[in-house]
Design a protein around this nucleic acid. Structure first.
Lengths: 126, 126
DNA sequence: GGTTGACCTGGAGCGCACTCCAGCTCCTAC
DNA sequence: GTAGGAGCTGGAGTGCGCTCCAGGTCAACC
């Protein structure tokens, strides 16, 4: 299967502009072109886009994704380094989750405080 | 207790410039000043800064923190709306955690793939 | 053959959240 | 009394990740 840029955008959740931007900065390889010079994305291309969006969602900066993309381009010899990057990234994502959870605790505390205030008012106005 | 801007920065984890910036954009109330015109932060000020950093860490945009700050400024009458904001924010933080966890799954999958490749190589070279 | 609509390019612009700077004041210590 | 260091102000600059635009090409349909 091949996909127009509009289809690739829809399936990846990225905008058309972002797809071209990612190509420009070397985050994705230039896709094939059809007879009219238009981009024609493959399933492999979409797979890579999907993976990129996961990295993006987890907060990996573009410069790091680019580094990963470049290593990938250099083939199997760089597999170890890529795995290492994913390892480290996984650690940072786990830390981020922990951090968010501890912030949730603070939110809970604050919300509970508002509830307590409400009940106090109820007591007074009753 | 009162704190110089340097101390407030150290304790809040924000930079001195960020403290002045937050004040400028109305995210924190202008603190007291000492005889020399220098900012003098109170424990309450630090408490608010701490809370702001939690909101920031959880990805609340500054414009929303500012809205919260303005409501807070208007006193108890706005408590309901503030509580509502925290509620909604809590929901979005929870969603964010869920999203991160599902991305973690993808990372695990990729890492496992690299491990499998390594073992294949071992098999060949052995 | 004219219009429409998707896509193309290079480059400018934007929103966010800071961060840095020049040039100044003030207090402290020698 | 002067040198140094912390802090002050208003305003400019930065890095990130897009997003938008003008002006053009191309294929398809009427």
């Amino acid at each position: 299967m091949t996909y127009s840029i509009a289809q690739a955008a829809e399936r990846s959740g990225l905008s058309i502009d972002t797809l071209r931007y990612y190509e420009r900065i070397g985050l994705v390889d230039p896709p094939a072109r059809d007879s009219g010079g238009r981009r024609s994305y493959s399933d492999d291309d979409l797979g890579w886009l999907f993976f990129l969006t996961r990295l993006r969602t987890t907060g990996m900066p573009i410069r790091m994704m680019r580094e990963y993309a470049q290593l990938r381009h250099r083939g199997a010899a760089t597999a170890g380094r890529r795995k290492q990057m994913l390892f480290e990234h996984r650690t940072s994502v786990r830390e981020r989750i922990t951090e968010l959870q501890s912030c949730l605790d603070v939110l809970e505390y604050k919300i509970a405080h508002y509830e307590q205030v409400e009940h106090t008012f109820e007591g007074i106005t009753a």
